[in-house]
């Protein structure tokens, strides 16, 4: 940050300069950490199905290929959801409030790639855990209370939801 901007930032704290918005598309303000958790659950579920698939099944190849395609699609979708939250919703003040934020987002991106490229249950569960932490931070910045509850999916995992 250049020195003039630093000084102006300091003055801004006292006088509050007017803000000109250069917002993207429609500034609808609708963000939600639900879909990325659904994506992470789907990845886990696809791995479970792959692991339990009967190799003698005549449709083994087609079914396995379909699980792979769905898993990879949801890993990409998860990355997109996180990118939107990161780029459009989270602001520098959130980073100040939660210093782990940047590292967490990078971590999610890397882990999502790992979960997409491999059939790796550890990576998939790790990914769910990290997006749930991001969901918790999201609800904290919104001043909403939340809870980690058993998800209504066959994955046997949890989901972070808003409770007020």
């Amino acid at each position: 940050m250049n020195p003039v901007t630093k000084i102006l930032n300091l003055i801004d704290k006292f006088v509050n300069f007017d803000i000109a918005e250069a917002h993207c598309d429609v500034p609808c303000g609708i963000y939600d950490p639900h879909q990325m958790q659904v994506d992470a659950h789907t990845i886990i579920r696809m791995i479970q199905l792959m692991q339990n698939l009967d190799k003698e099944n005549p449709e083994y190849m087609q079914t396995y290929a379909r699980y792979v395609a769905v898993k990879e699609h949801h890993a990409e979708n998860l990355k997109r959801e996180v990118r939107v939250l990161w780029g459009d919703y989270f602001k520098p003040q959130h980073q100040e409030q939660f210093p782990e934020l940047t590292e967490l987002v990078w971590d999610i991106m890397r882990t999502a790639s790992q979960a997409r490229q491999h059939v790796d249950m550890e990576a998939a569960k790790n990914l769910l855990e990290k997006v749930q932490r991001l969901a918790e931070i999201f609800f904290e910045t919104k001043g909403k209370s939340y809870a980690k509850l058993p998800a209504p999916y066959p994955t046997g995992e949890t989901i972070v939801v808003q409770t007020n």
Partner: peptide
């Protein structure tokens, strides 16, 4: 004259989020 602070990214790369303009 007036000093204004920029919020959002629709004017990138010319104006960046958090930048001040006269």
């Amino acid at each position: 004259f007036k000093i204004i602070k920029i919020q959002g990214r629709s004017m990138e790369p010319s104006l960046k989020e958090g930048q001040f303009v006269l």
